[in-house]
């Protein structure tokens, strides 16, 4: 498809031989094709979706004297069961029956925000009135549930949280609702 110089040459009478002026224009189509092919390759081969890092902070287990007493009335305990199920209760264990919840916008996120506000209101006169969330993943919970839960904590802006080992009575609670 290279452009040919069609201006000179044919149809002229007189027989004067003129040297053909070669066109300086080169056909770039093939070159552009190649360039775009390579671009496509590099886009495909690059990690576009870079992995994200969710920072987590854990209590120091090597020191024994840094444990703060947790006022039970300000805690919300979240149990992670099988099949992405959640159960939560506020206050000491066994006082109120747990609520079964799920990972949706109107599920656990709403519960966290609502309860956080409630607790802040009921402890308004005290020095600390923020809610403490205790996350207790059961053995049937998957890593995904755990990450989703941590994500909800970040989204709702919960100030204080801790990941705690689950206890047998809590497993019983999960079993009762068929979530273990």
């Amino acid at each position: 498809m290279a452009e040919l110089d069609t201006s000179g040459g044919g149809g002229k009478k007189g027989g004067k031989v003129r040297s053909k002026k070669a066109s300086t224009r080169i056909d770039l189509t093939a070159m552009v094709d190649l360039a775009f092919l390579l671009i496509t390759f590099f886009i495909m081969a690059t990690t576009l979706a870079k992995p994200k890092a969710m920072d987590t902070f854990w209590p120091d287990k090597t020191k024994k004297d840094v444990q703060l007493p947790v006022p039970e009335s300000r805690t919300m305990t979240v149990l992670l069961g099988n099949n992405h199920s959640i159960e939560w209760y506020v206050g000491p264990a066994g006082k109120t029956p747990p609520t079964v919840d799920h990972f949706t916008k109107n599920g656990i996120r709403k519960s966290l925000i609502d309860k956080s506000k409630e607790i802040e209101a009921s402890h308004a006169g005290e020095k600390d009135n923020y809610m403490i969330v205790l996350i207790k993943p059961s053995e049937k919970a998957t890593y995904k549930d755990f990450v989703s839960m941590m994500d909800e904590i970040t989204i709702t802006g919960i100030k204080s949280y801790a990941v705690v080992a689950i206890t047998p009575p809590e497993i019983e609670l999960l079993k009762k609702d068929g979530n273990f």
Binding site: P51, K52, A53, F57, W58, D60, K61
Partner: peptide, 18 residues
């Protein structure tokens, strides 16, 4: 996590995708 906590690594990231 337990192994990390045993040597007092208490801050670490969980890798997630967006």
């Amino acid at each position: 996590i337990d192994v990390l906590q045993k040597q007092a690594v208490n801050k670490f990231s969980l890798i997630t995708s967006l």
